[in-house]
Amino acid sequence: MSHQTFLTTEELAQRIKYDARTIRNQLKDSVLIEGVHYVRPFGGRKILYIWEQILEDMTKVQPRSTSIPMAAGGVCNG
């Protein structure tokens, strides 16, 4: 079984230099996925973040997008 480091919201905030409120309000549910990046132990309300998975995803190189958003919606791929 692999070792995983579980962090509270405050501990994660310190490591990635984000405000804990940003993690709770913006990253969770949009960037961080339950079951991948965080768990709710024993089906409770408390959230513990999985450091190794977050670190791996944070350091992935994302391809540069050449899409240009259009005012009327959609994108122009240039």
Rank of each mutant, 00 (worst) to 15 (best):
M1P: 15
M1F: 11
S2Q: 15
S2C: 11
Q4A: 14
Q4H: 13
Q4M: 14
T5W: 00
T5Q: 03
T5G: 04
F6T: 05
F6C: 06
L7P: 02
L7S: 04
L7M: 07
L7Q: 02
T9A: 07
T9P: 00
E10A: 13
E10R: 09
E11S: 06
E11V: 01
E11C: 04
L12D: 03
L12N: 02
L12Q: 01
L12R: 00
L12K: 00
A13G: 04
A13Y: 01
Q14F: 09
R15T: 06
I16T: 03
I16M: 06
K17I: 10
Y18A: 06
Y18Q: 10
Y18R: 12
D19Q: 10
A20M: 03
R21Y: 12
R21P: 02
I23H: 00
R24Q: 13
N25F: 10
Q26P: 03
Q26H: 15
Q26D: 11
Q26A: 12
Q26C: 09
L27C: 03
K28E: 13
K28P: 01
K28W: 05
D29W: 06
D29A: 08
D29T: 11
D29R: 08
S30W: 09
S30I: 13
L32F: 14
L32R: 01
I33R: 07
E34Y: 03
E34T: 05
G35M: 01
H37E: 03
H37P: 03
Y38H: 02
Y38N: 00
Y38D: 00
Y38C: 01
V39D: 02
R40N: 11
P41T: 00
G43E: 03
G43H: 04
G44N: 06
G44R: 07
G44D: 03
G44E: 06
R45Y: 09
K46L: 11
K46I: 08
K46T: 11
K46V: 12
I47Q: 01
I47W: 00
L48D: 05
Y49L: 01
I50K: 00
W51G: 02
W51Y: 12
E52T: 06
L55R: 15
L55G: 10
L55S: 15
E56G: 11
E56L: 12
D57W: 04
D57C: 08
M58H: 11
T59D: 09
T59W: 02
K60M: 07
K60G: 05
V61C: 07
V61T: 13
Q62K: 14
Q62I: 15
Q62C: 12
P63N: 04
S65H: 06
S67I: 07
S67G: 10
S67P: 05
S67T: 11
S67W: 10
S67K: 12
I68S: 08
P69N: 02
P69S: 05
M70G: 12
M70W: 12
A71Q: 14
A72M: 11
A72W: 10
G74V: 04
G74M: 06
V75S: 13
C76G: 08
N77D: 15
G78H: 09
G78P: 13
